[in-house]
Write a protein that binds this DNA or RNA. Structure first.
Ligand SMILES: [Mn+2]
Ligand SMILES: [Mn+2]
Ligand SMILES: [Mn+2]
Ligand SMILES: [Mn+2]
Lengths: 219, 219
DNA sequence: AAATTAATTTAGATTTAACTAAAAATATTT
DNA sequence: AAATATTTTTAGTTAAATCTAAATTAATTT
């Protein structure tokens, strides 16, 4: 049984490892968790003894199959709670992440089973991220950043790659939501910003950073 | 802001103090929390510096108005979550207490406001305990133990004084639920057990301990 | 291949929340 | 009023999770 702190480290490792496909360095973790490298070294040693990651001094860590399973279950809980907050409690999509950070650590398998049922087995969270199933399986849809699209392409927003309230509120202001239809008009060489048309309304410019965090699929 | 541990101590103090009306000793707390007296002494010193209790060496503690307000807010959260679990997620009344012990520490005022709304402003939890309102006001109904009733009295079950799963499952087996009509037939001098009739079915005996934990009102 | 820089680990310290054992204060019994 | 028992506190330890500063290892530049 992992502590809340250990769960947060493991989840961070999972995310940074790109679904367990890449190694994760001490500094990457320190950065992600706003913690000092020395603290991270201590914790990864502990997690390695629990066999949820493998660790070689100075070589970084890799998540193990057991660790990945636990990480995906935490992510499942996080995303189910986000759906609950938005669908049932009428929260906005920019308000739910921090609360879900707390709720994801509640321990009760039955609770999550019942919550899933109550929410009618959702497959994605309010930001378009897929919800792992009970067996830890993740449906991966291929997503493109708006920043990568070519002028003329007509796309549909299927997810966002960032759950910061500031970013999501910005999307609200410019009229982006999951399901919105976006036509890419032009990419500005100078600063990487992109001119887009959302749901056939007058076009707007979005910054490179914004365009990299909006994920779309061909429509 | 109190830590999870401090919140649990404060809640225990509130409960043991009978709504803040009585002092609470070190040993009472150690007992309630399954902790050593020395640990309790440390923690009550800390809580006293935070002005949620007053403490005099060797004299035990008293909860302050500020402490009572915080305790009632934790209890409010606990009971609202229990209603959620039973009403929305179809849990049994004996399954919810331990999960609510975790959920009560989630920090978000908005979450509790929205949950209350979602549950349509319930006034009691699944065990008949009143839910403090947003201002920390508690509606106190006067409740009688079955053990205190006189033979011949017709009563209605309005609450239970114990949320242990074993006790609640026992009530399920003998047919006691909130709202059940109970006729007290006889009190056995020898062991304090009580013969009762539930919803006009054939009479049963319940132990003194059981009779002390079922709360009723005249019907 | 040195020298320098960057990343990582080690050593030692701190805080929180627990513990045991011993001391001190209070309460009860004789 | 002593003696005894009980309760509570103090003193010193431990484990978890952090930190800073110093040492070590690895990577990069000259
Ligand atoms: Mn989130
Ligand atoms: Mn978390
Ligand atoms: Mn409860
Ligand atoms: Mn609790």
């Amino acid at each position: 049984m992992l502590s809340l702190t250990e769960e947060n480290y493991l989840k961070a490792i999972y995310h940074l490892s790109n679904d367990g496909t890449k190694g994760v360095t001490t500094n990457m973790l320190a950065d992600q968790l706003s913690m000092r490298a020395a603290s991270v070294t201590d914790m990864i040693k502990k997690l390695a003894t629990k066999d949820v990651i493998s660790y070689e001094k100075y070589k970084g860590v890799n998540i193990t199959p057991a660790g990945k399973k636990i990480a995906l279950y935490i992510i499942r809980k996080h995303r189910l709670w986000e759906v609950f907050l938005v669908d049932k409690l009428k929260f906005q999509w920019d308000e739910v992440h921090d609360i879900a950070e707390q709720l994801e650590h509640i321990k009760s398998e039955l609770l999550i089973k019942r919550l899933d049922e109550f929410l009618d087995y959702p497959s994605v969270d309010p930001h378009g991220d897929p919800i792992p199933d009970e067996h830890g399986e993740l449906a991966v849809a291929k997503k493109l950043q708006i920043a990568e699209c070519l002028p003329g392409q007509l796309m549909q927003v299927i997810a966002v790659d960032n759950s910061d309230a500031q970013f999501l509120k910005h999307l609200d202001r410019i009229g982006i939501y999951l399901g919105a239809k976006v036509k890419v008009l032009e990419t500005v060489e100078f600063d990487g910003s992109v001119e887009i048309e959302i749901d056939r309304r007058p076009s707007v410019y979005i910054s490179k950073q914004t365009a990299e965090n909006i994920l779309v699929t061909e429509k």
